[in-house]
């Protein structure tokens, strides 16, 4: 059924819908479709593509560096998701409980989030190399150093963001529920795990979703802090894809195939997580 307003607006599509759609076609749809197509071809520029079937994809999975980057990215995502959410939630909980979510502290913790990945990378390059220099080492000493360096950096960056979401969630939680549970004789950890956390599921959903996708897509910080050094040992997926495209001549097709694999993984995470967590939400 179409309403009166709907009918009148429909013929204005050229003004209202077309500009966004046209930009969307140029900036997203065509590059996306071409990207899918090119992943099945061998090419150096877009115009000389030659169909090679699935050869690029077998190239992807026989590339040891890609597999290494994939495993490292999964580990990185798991570690940062846990640290960021546990610490972010704890700070949010203590701040709301003791200081009613004081704005001053909230602002300080949130601050790193506004700074871009490249700048963040160099800030932490200074700090981490400064500390490591006491042992005569640097962040590029080994892949493990780079990995934990990035974990620290990303935790510092994102804890404040997630904390803001958790504070809002905690503040909108009905106070009488917690009171009722303490009247019923629940102890501290029972209240936390059986009342507060189930009620906070919507916020936890959003935050874990954001940290997982951010972790998977991390690029700028990786580029600035270690650039994959030493010898690609601290290289995450996004950087690996980038360097396959722009660092290895003749590997453009493989690079595009990697990008498709990357897209499928990210999309799958988003969809699975959406399904999983929305079913776990509880209302008071």
């Amino acid at each position: 059924m179409i309403t009166m307003v709907g009918k009148a607006i429909r013929k204005w599509w050229g003004v209202f819908a077309l500009p966004t759609f046209a930009a969307f076609v140029i900036g997203f749809l065509i590059p996306f479709v071409m990207g899918i197509y090119l992943s099945f071809t061998k090419f150096t520029t877009v115009t000389n593509a030659r169909w090679v079937g699935l050869r690029n994809f077998s190239g992807v999975f026989s590339d040891k560096e890609f597999i290494h980057a994939l495993i490292l990215t999964v580990a990185f995502t798991v570690v940062t998701t846990i640290i960021v959410n546990v610490v972010g939630f704890s700070i949010a909980y203590m701040l709301t409980k003791t200081l009613k979510g004081s704005n001053l502290f909230r602002s300080v913790f949130f601050m790193p989030n506004l700074i871009g990945g490249i700048v963040l990378g160099y800030i932490w390059l200074l700090l981490l190399n400064g500390v490591l220099s006491y042992w005569g080492r640097s962040i590029t000493f080994s892949g493990t150093y780079g990995f934990w360096g990035m974990v620290l950096l990303v935790s510092w960056q994102q804890i404040g963001y997630m904390m803001i979401i958790y504070i809002a969630g905690l503040q909108s939680m009905p106070g009488d529920v917690i009171e009722a549970s303490s009247v019923d004789g629940a102890n501290g950890s029972q209240t936390m795990f059986q009342v507060i956390i189930p009620l906070m599921m919507p916020s936890i959903t959003v935050c874990s979703f954001l940290t997982v996708t951010n972790g998977f897509k991390l690029f700028d910080q990786n580029l600035a802090l270690t650039n994959g050094a030493p010898s690609n040992n601290s290289e995450l997926l996004a950087l690996n894809i980038y360097r396959t495209f722009y660092g290895r001549v003749g590997f453009e097709g493989v690079g595009q195939a990697k990008a498709v694999v990357f897209f499928i993984i990210v999309a799958a995470i988003v969809l699975i997580q959406n399904r999983l967590t929305t079913s776990k939400e509880v209302t008071a």
């Binding site: 997203f28 990207g35 520029t45 690079g255």
Partner: peptide, 16 residues
């Protein structure tokens, strides 16, 4: 569009 990472389109987008 919201679930597609930039790396998926970066090469073709820069060419376009």
């Amino acid at each position: 569009n919201m679930i597609v990472p930039f790396q998926m389109v970066m090469f073709t987008l820069s060419k376009i």
